[in-house]
Design a protein around this nucleic acid. Structure first.
Lengths: 343, 343
DNA sequence: CTGAAAGCGCTTACAG
DNA sequence: CTGAAAGCGCTTACAG
């Protein structure tokens, strides 16, 4: 039966060395006013006694928790795990801890977490909104508390705050234009949930490219999905195959549905990309595995995390709160692979 | 320029209500000794003033941080993101926070993080070892501090601690035996790094099934890989195709290499599963997408996280430290899909 | 260069 | 049922 031993404290060190706690504290913090001799002595004794500073006491005293909160819909979605990875990477280097919460895409749970975070004294919060969150009142309290927020991916609309996004409109435009340049004349779009801004933007980008290049616009070629799941992709693909004139290009709002299209079309005897070229969105690992490899948009998930972290920490360390709200838009990149390489 | 406003404290509430801070504290903690009338009054005033308890002060005072640390090699590996998701899920329900760190598979960084966690006053730590960690001295301090540890997946050998694992030997045995029962006579194995216990076990499980069923054992049919990457899988598959007698079954130590095998073999005109049946390991999302769908082992990543969290919190709340070290071995499950459905 | 003292915001054993 | 008091382990303004 091992009893929890009480830790060595500053006071213990002080008594051992016949110095005051103040001096010990300063010596360990490498304060310029302390002599090198004393610093060495303190360091040595600290080592000897296995002194570990109680950072909760320190946080409490300094009112700086050195930790940031992150709310994601789910950790196990690859996109978010990449973002978190980027957040942790930058935060670690800067000395901040990252505490993670999953909203499970429930606004109720998001609100619960927000409350929790308010008394956890995190110094800042990075958030991807739950899918059904349209009201941002629960975040207002953070402003009062002087706790900066940075949203990414699913960000609030009409709410003055910090955001890290990609340009969905332009990315979709790029993807669609690529298909046009490869000679596609009848391009379909598997669209995402139109109540989510990013998917709306992707649809608009698609439309804009179609218009710019004077292709005939056909409403039937746009199929909106609820969750863009693999299964929904299969359904969309099957509908397309029933058209009297099957699309010769398909721009999908994510990679899952693009993969479904490729598989369903191939099974039906269509050649990809010769008969129908396909472009996805997100550059999921699967896009390099599916045959043919999928042309897609690199949505910069990792970098999004790094930027969110960087911006948040900049805001935290701007003690005077002089910085204005900022929106950072990351450049995406069209990754061309076999699924669209016709000609 | 918004100034950080100072928060309302217990003392403020006390003064407002002409009660002592002790009473306020107890009222908010729903202490039985406090009258309902007082509790109501306090609750109401707290609401009114937007009182948010300072949980750092509370943690400090109670010496309970209500938070656990998690060290994973990388967050963006699907397996780990599932585990973390499971950890967060259970911890959240129990009121613990989860602070995440990535070792990047570097023992040096792992040691740094361990130091950090020791003064962060986390109440427990869940760890998947960095790949090159063979020495566990840096974890010993936690025992002295009374901070319980739970390892998962890559766990220490010869070190008395808590572990959550799956039975790799048995899982591999099951997978191989499945191939044998499907009529395979010449079964190859793409093996993982043999200095990692889990991959050693998988190889042993494979061997054991071969022996049990009296298949002829051929050392050439076992190819060990460094990292079991998709690319290494391609190389293995190409070697197999050069054999005078090509394997009619392949058990791969992970899903990536299994996917490579399927693709390379198909391109070479082999039929899967008719000519060669393939089984992977881990049940990655890709296994339900690759054609034919991949037979694989469900390695229970999410559940592993839940169990790790559950065990850790049980240990934390066992104030007297009466619990002995425990190893929990999770049942895996063979998921049979088309890649092995011959006959 | 070092120390004494106050205090961060809570909780809790003790007293009544 | 409520309160006064001590104290958790640090940090820092003030003094010397």
């Amino acid at each position: 039966m091992v009893m929890k031993q009480s830790r060595t404290t500053l006071k213990d060190l002080a008594e051992d060395l016949n110095l005051s706690p103040s001096t010990i504290s300063r010596a360990l913090a490498n304060h310029p006013a302390i002599s090198d001799a004393t610093k060495k002595k303190v360091q040595k004794k600290a080592e000897e006694l296995g002194f570990i500073p109680n950072s909760i006491a320190s946080s409490f005293r300094k009112k700086k928790s050195q930790s940031i909160g992150v709310i994601v819909p789910r950790i196990d979605i690859h996109f978010h795990s990449l973002v978190i990875s980027g957040i942790e990477e930058f935060a670690y280097k800067t000395g901040y801890n990252v505490t993670i919460f999953q909203s499970k895409d429930s606004t109720t749970r998001e609100k619960e977490i927000v409350k929790l975070l308010q008394n956890k004294m995190v110094e800042g919060v990075i958030i991807c909104l739950a899918i059904e969150t349209y009201d941002y009142d629960h975040f207002k309290k953070f402003k009062k508390l002087g706790v900066p927020l940075v949203f990414y991916d699913r960000v609030p609309s009409n709410y003055d705050t910090n955001k890290i996004v990609i340009n969905d409109f332009e990315s979709a435009f790029k993807a669609t234009e690529h298909l046009i340049k490869r000679g596609c004349k009848r391009i379909a779009h598997i669209a995402g949930n139109q109540s989510t801004p990013i998917f709306k933007e992707r649809l608009e980008g698609y439309k804009s490219a179609i218009r710019k290049h004077n292709l005939s616009f056909d409403e039937k070629l746009i199929i909106p999905c609820k969750s863009l799941s693999y299964e929904e992709g299969v359904q969309c693909a099957e509908s397309f195959l029933k058209f009297s004139s099957i699309p010769d290009g398909i721009f999908c709002a994510n990679d899952y549905t693009a993969v479904s299209v490729i598989q369903v079309f191939r099974k039906a005897g269509m050649r990809i990309p010769e008969d129908t070229a396909v472009v996805g969105f997100s550059n999921y690992p699967i896009s390099r595995v599916i045959e043919p490899h999928l042309t897609t948009i690199n949505d910069r998930a990792f970098q999004m995390g790094v930027e969110a972290s960087k911006l948040l920490i900049r805001l935290i360390e701007d003690e005077k709160r002089t910085l204005k709200s900022e929106t950072i838009s990351l450049e995406t990149e069209l990754i061309v692979r076999e699924s669209s390489m016709k000609d």
